[in-house]
Simulated assay, not measured.
Amino acid sequence: MAVALFKLPKWVKRNLYKGKSFSDLTDKELADIHRKLQRFKSPDPEVSVMIPAWNEENNIFRTLSSLANSRTKRKVELVVINNNSTDLTQKVLDKLGVISYFEPKQGITFARQLGLERAKGKYHLCADSDTFYPPGWIDAMVAPLEKDDDVVGVYGRYAFIPENDYDRAFFWVYERLASVIIRLRRLRREHINFLGFNMGFITQVGLANGGFKVKNVRKFDNAIGSDYYVDESEDGRMAVNLMKTGRLKLVTDNKAVVFTSSRRLIAEGGILEAFKSRFKLHTNRLSEYLKGKKI
């Protein structure tokens, strides 16, 4: 996995708007993002890119900026599902001219399900509002779905953007260890690898097999160790549902590697605490990854 050890890629830096909130953007910056996003309003799209958002006014414009720089010739609709935000998220979306739907029921499951039901594209790509997407992401994710009839779902790899002066190299080590776990889980528990900020599937298969519906709806950060942590996730449930019809595929193309916020790790007490809790979790589940478990 050729991800920068000490530095963030240039394409990430271009979309960071470091030190700026949405209100700090210049008219020129706003106009540039707005103009580029207008390409992704196809009335008859091949690809639907769906992003749930809850109180993300100062994050989502960065995500949208990265997606605005996508290099694809495919017809695409880019849609944000505003999940009952109480901040200025909707104002940001309106200012940038983004298609959006409002989901009043609180919970990422409800937001993703609404996006699925409203999607017009043959292919459905899931993104998150605190993640950066490389220019070739759309095409790299769709390619396996298009090429192999047996593949109904895809998922990509990821790296973290440091916060609070953490060194990028420290995250690089964490990511290398996570990549080992990902490959172990491919043996018997691949659905756990299916993460909502970097995954895709054939829309009709997802709809027909049950979508994102789960028994317990998780909150957006879902930090491990918190009182509100929910083990069952809507993305994992979607993966299980997809596997009723076909198989999942890990996209190893570097063009599908996304950079996501490290705020969930921070919420778990910082990268060291997050590493320890996840190491314990995965150690306890090792036999499950290798031998399988009833889903």
Rank of each mutant, 00 (worst) to 15 (best):
N69K: 15
N241W: 04
R278H: 15
A143D: 10
S66F: 00
K41R: 15
A119M: 06
G136F: 05
A239W: 03
V240Y: 12
V47K: 13
E29I: 03
N222D: 03
D149R: 10
I161F: 09
N209G: 04
L145N: 00
F194I: 01
K147H: 02
R263H: 12
L281C: 09
K249G: 00
S287Q: 08
A143I: 04
F6V: 07
K75F: 00
V173W: 15
A31I: 02
R263T: 11
A169T: 02
L290A: 01
K73M: 08
G156P: 00
D32A: 10
W54C: 09
F170I: 14
V258S: 05
R264T: 15
K294Q: 13
V3M: 14
A31T: 04
D148A: 11
E163F: 09
G269A: 01
V76R: 13
D148W: 11
P104A: 06
R263P: 00
S21A: 13
R168C: 08
S48G: 01
V151M: 10
I138F: 06
R185K: 09
L125H: 00
D148L: 12
S287K: 12
E288V: 12
Y101K: 13
G200C: 07
Q204E: 15
S70E: 08
R247W: 04
G210S: 02
M243I: 02
G115E: 00
R183G: 04
S21T: 14
M1N: 07
A127H: 05
I161G: 04
S21N: 13
S48N: 02
N241D: 02
L187I: 10
L272M: 14
E273N: 12
Q106C: 06
R39V: 00
T86R: 15
D24E: 08
K105F: 15
L116F: 00
D149W: 05
R118Q: 12
T86N: 11
G292I: 06
R278N: 11
L25D: 00
R157I: 03
L290V: 01
D253P: 01
